Computed example of a mutant assay.
Amino acid sequence: MNDGENTVERDETEWRERLSEEEYRVLRENGTEARFSGEYVDHDADGVYRCAGCGSLLFESETKYHSGCGWPAFYAATDGSVTTQVDESHGMRRTEVRCASCDSHLGHVFEDGPDPTGKRFCINSVAMEFDDDPEDR
C-alpha cells in the first residue's frame, strides 16, 4: 500500500465534468454499486484495471478471482497504487481502498482472500476502466 501524496488534484467542478453521475457517487462520495451489477464482476479478459478517475494502474487481471462477493475481487493491488484507511460507516468497521494518485474511493479490502496474499480487494466496477493493450502497462 502507498502512503504517498496524491498526484492528481481536481476541484469538485472538474470531477463533476469528468465523471458520470454514478462514477461521481462512488469515486467522490464513497458510494457502492449494487452487488452483481457491475461490468467487471464476471470479466475474465487479460489486461489491467485502471482508476476511472485518473487512469492510474490499480490491478492486473492475473490477480482477479471469483470470490462470490458480488463485486470484482483481486488478491493484490499493483505496488503503490492504493492507500487504505479505516471506514466505520454503516455501523461496520472495514478497511477502505482509495486510489493513491487521485484519492478516489474504490471499495474495501478484507482478510479472507486466497493465497498468496490472503486479501480480497472488493472493488466497484464503476471505479475502474479495463485496458487490454499490453503497451499501456
Score class of each variant (00 low, 15 high):
residue 115 D to S: 03
residue 67 S to E: 04
residue 72 P to R: 01
residue 127 A to S: 12
residue 10 R to K: 14
residue 115 D to A: 09
residue 97 V to E: 03
residue 60 E to Y: 01
residue 45 A to K: 13
residue 116 P to V: 00
residue 100 A to I: 02
residue 38 G to Y: 09
residue 100 A to S: 14
residue 66 H to F: 12
residue 85 Q to P: 01
residue 105 H to Y: 13
residue 38 G to S: 03
residue 133 D to Q: 08
residue 13 T to P: 04
residue 102 C to A: 04
residue 109 V to P: 01
residue 78 T to N: 04
residue 52 A to F: 04
residue 31 G to D: 11
residue 14 E to Q: 15
residue 83 T to V: 06
residue 25 R to G: 11
residue 85 Q to T: 15
residue 32 T to I: 06
residue 93 R to V: 14
residue 65 Y to S: 03
residue 48 V to I: 07
residue 137 R to E: 09
residue 106 L to T: 01
residue 109 V to G: 02
residue 4 G to I: 02
residue 105 H to V: 06
residue 38 G to N: 08
residue 105 H to T: 07
residue 133 D to N: 15
residue 10 R to I: 10
residue 15 W to L: 08
residue 54 C to N: 04
residue 73 A to R: 00
residue 132 D to E: 14
residue 114 P to R: 06
residue 1 M to K: 05
residue 129 E to W: 04
residue 99 C to W: 06
residue 114 P to K: 06
residue 41 V to D: 15
residue 109 V to A: 03
residue 6 N to T: 13
residue 103 D to K: 05
residue 118 G to F: 00
residue 15 W to R: 13
residue 72 P to K: 02
residue 28 R to L: 13
residue 44 D to W: 09
residue 112 D to A: 13
residue 120 R to D: 01
residue 45 A to G: 07
residue 91 G to P: 15
residue 1 M to E: 06
residue 19 L to V: 08
residue 69 C to K: 06
residue 38 G to M: 09
residue 133 D to E: 15
residue 105 H to L: 09
residue 88 E to P: 02
residue 122 C to W: 07
residue 59 F to L: 01
residue 4 G to L: 08
residue 2 N to M: 04
residue 71 W to C: 05
residue 100 A to F: 06
residue 6 N to R: 12
residue 38 G to Q: 10
residue 27 L to C: 10
residue 16 R to V: 08
residue 4 G to E: 14
residue 3 D to R: 07
residue 88 E to D: 14
residue 119 K to D: 00
residue 1 M to L: 12
residue 113 G to W: 00
residue 41 V to G: 13
residue 111 E to R: 08
residue 129 E to M: 12
residue 126 V to I: 15
residue 68 G to N: 09
residue 42 D to W: 06
residue 103 D to A: 08
residue 135 E to H: 10
residue 88 E to T: 12
residue 43 H to M: 08
residue 130 F to N: 02
residue 24 Y to H: 12
residue 130 F to T: 02
residue 50 R to D: 04
residue 16 R to G: 12
residue 7 T to Y: 05
residue 59 F to M: 03
residue 118 G to E: 00
residue 20 S to F: 08
residue 67 S to P: 04
residue 37 S to I: 04
residue 96 E to L: 09
residue 117 T to F: 03
residue 35 R to M: 11
residue 117 T to A: 04
residue 2 N to V: 02
residue 20 S to K: 09
residue 88 E to F: 11
residue 118 G to H: 00
residue 98 R to F: 06
residue 68 G to H: 09
residue 14 E to H: 12
residue 121 F to N: 02
residue 54 C to H: 05
residue 83 T to Q: 15
residue 1 M to D: 02
residue 103 D to E: 10
residue 23 E to G: 14
residue 112 D to Y: 08
residue 75 Y to Q: 01
residue 12 E to K: 10
residue 7 T to N: 08
residue 131 D to L: 03
residue 22 E to W: 03
residue 97 V to K: 05
